[in-house]
Amino acid sequence: MSLFLELFAAIDWADIGTATVETLTMVGGSLVFTIIFGLPLGIVLFLTGPRQLLAHKQVYSFLSLLVNLLRSMPFVILLILMIPVTVALVGTSIGVVGAIPPLVVGATPFFARLVENVLREVDRGIIEASQAMGATLRQIVFGAVLPEAFPGLLAATTVTAIALVSYAAMSGVIGGGGLGDLAIRFGYQRFQTEVMFVTVAILLILVQLLQMFGDRLVHRFTRS
C-alpha cells in the first residue's frame, strides 16, 4: 500500500487536472466542427451515391476519393502536413487551439463516411413513401431520412468522439496539449512511467464514459 502511494506521490495532480480539461476541450471543440462539416458531406455522399435520389457518378467518385485520401493518411503525418494551414487559420500550431484544425480535418472524412452508411441503412420504402406524398428533396432529407437515422447518427458521433480522444492524445507529439502532451513530456521524456499510467487510465475512463453516454442516448431515441 505504502509503495503504491509512494509511486503516485511524485505526480502533480494539478497538471493532470489541467491536461484532462484540455483534452476534453480539444475533443469537444473538434467534435462540434467535425459534425458541422462531416454531416453535410455525409449527406451529399449519401444522396449522390449509386441509385440514390441525386445519383451522380462524377460528384460521388470525386468526394469518395477525397474522403479516402484523407482517411488513408496516417494521423501523425496529417498533423505535420497541416501545420502551415493551422497557423494560417488560428494563428498557432500548438496548444489546444492549434490541435483543433488537424483533428477536424482528420475526423471529418471518417464521420462523413459513417453518416453515409447510416443514411443508406434507412429503409428505401420510407424515402419512396415520402416521394409519393409529394415531399421535396429537402423535406425527404430533413423530415424523413435524418429523423429516421437519428439513433444511428448518435452512434456514429460516439464512435467519432472516441476516435477524437485518441487523435487528441496523438497531437501531443507536435505539442498539442492535453493528456497526450503530458504523457509524452513526463512519461516518455522524463521517464515518469506513473504519469503515463495515470494518463492512460484517465483516457480509458474517458472512452468508457463516452461510450456509455452514447449508448444511452442511442437507446433513448430508438423506437423499436
Partner: peptide, 16 residues
C-alpha cells in the same frame, strides 16, 4: 402527388 394517396405492402411508416 400530394393529392394522390399511396399505401404499401410494408407500410413504410416513419418509425421515429
Amino acid at each position: 402527388r400530394r393529392t394522390t394517396g399511396m399505401i404499401f405492402q410494408h407500410f413504410n411508416l416513419l418509425g421515429a
